[in-house]
Design a protein around this nucleic acid. Structure first.
Lengths: 248, 248
DNA sequence: TAGTGGTCTAGACCACCTG
DNA sequence: AGGTGGTCTAGACCACTAC
């Protein structure tokens, strides 16, 4: 037993320990975990209990199971995961297009009070501010403003950021060991200012969808803020709830 | 055994049969199911297999478990479920307010092609069109336009609709046995037309959040369309994904 | 062929709720 | 006290993957 006097069920404890090991980097993203039999031995629990712990970690996308191959730490490299955090689709047929990203600005700055609260850091903490313009089907459609705590991404530079050969979240994962698991978003309607209008090829006062996202890693630790302004003339934001991903 | 030659796992088959029984009305919303022991006997499976079937039904909100009391068909009467489909919260503190609903129109009409496709009915099928104005903190904030197939709500009248003493989804459930489990939404930004501006107390051309929802019941059958126009000056739309509801 | 995860069983004990 | 769901065990067998 491992229970250590906690009042939580054994499988929750196992899940907590496994998640902590992954967060610590004992297994990198994409790496295979020991087999269920071995993990059960390691934690001195039955296979059933170990499986129940991993069941929840699968639902939370911390790990992925492949029958016959093993259980792997979830990775952003797969295409499926790339679109897991990209909810803007083409109007009508809901097609998902790969966005073309252009970085307009990369600056070092200090966290504003509101940002600091959402990032769980002190006011004035060093941050990066990044502005990206995303094009869909060749047309500028989304204007993204990112805020990242410098402490989490120590040696990040504009060159590293722009010369990545994959998604932004994959860069966080492969270079800094930061895995984005969840995102919490708040949406509202806004009017295009002079800035956004010019960049998105709109008239000032055109309607835009504004999305404020907090990206979260293990234990719900915030690792990025992102405000998106979306031109929804040809695109929409998809939201499914009550849904589970379980195929009937 | 029950497997009946299907290639699906036993627990999926059990889940399918249980869900079908609920959809058929063998147990009404809020009713208690037989105990796990009895259900396991009924389907000639072990408790473990029966529990795995119910586990998934819990995730899909088809049933709710209460330790020591039993397993119940999910019901809309609970306050928690009411807010499960209401994602508009107060800006800043994200407080959930109970909306005050006023029905502005209730008409019988025919399904337009786009509506018919989304509702899985024939073009021209009889529908109800309902327009509601929702106020939050005493101020008109959301303009809802609903489309319901008349076939699903046979004797519905404006009087029945407006004199319900609970949520709209609870009316569907208690009077017509229709349980809304999921909703699929598409969001975009729009400008207030003369109509919406007047009703929401805005200037024409003010930015609005437009939400198109399809409400789904068992086996993903569509049971309602709803277009919402939201004044997001004081409110926001919340969206969490990658999340699971599992408390760490 | 060996090893992996996926399913299924049969039972024990506990925590909780209702009478 | 009796019944409910919640946890945990210890195994068996199957389906899939890699070598």
């Amino acid at each position: 037993m491992i229970d250590a006097g906690a009042f939580a069920p054994l499988y929750k404890e196992v899940k907590r320990l496994l998640t902590a090991s992954i967060a610590k980097g004992e297994w990198q993203a994409g790496a295979v975990l020991p087999s269920e039999t071995r993990l059960a031995q390691r934690f001195s629990v039955s296979i059933g209990t170990l499986r129940k712990a991993i069941d929840e970690m699968v639902v939370e996308r911390i790990v992925v199971r492949h029958q016959g191959r093993g259980t792997f730490v979830a990775s952003h490299s797969a295409n499926r995961l790339m679109f897991h955090f990209f909810h803007v689709v083409r109007r009508g047929d809901r097609a998902r297009e790969v966005p073309e990203t252009k970085t307009l600005a990369f600056r070092r700055a200090r966290a504003e009070p509101a940002e600091a609260a959402m990032l769980h850091v002190a006011v004035g903490e060093p941050v990066y501010r990044v502005r990206n313009l995303l094009s869909l089907a060749g047309r500028p459609t989304i204007l993204d403003d990112l805020v990242l705590p410098q402490a989490l991404y120590p040696d990040l530079t504009e060159k590293i950021f722009t010369q990545r050969d994959n998604t932004i979240y994959h860069l966080y994962q492969s270079r800094y060991g930061i895995n984005v698991l969840r995102a919490s978003e708040r949406l509202s309607a806004a009017l295009a200012g002079a800035d956004a209008a010019k960049l998105l090829g709109l008239k000032k006062g055109a309607p835009l969808l504004e999305i404020s996202r907090v990206a979260l890693s293990y234990h719900n630790a915030p690792v990025e803020l992102r405000r998106s302004l979306v031109d929804t003339r040809e695109h929409e934001y998809l939201s499914d709830f009550g849904g589970t991903g379980i195929v009937q």
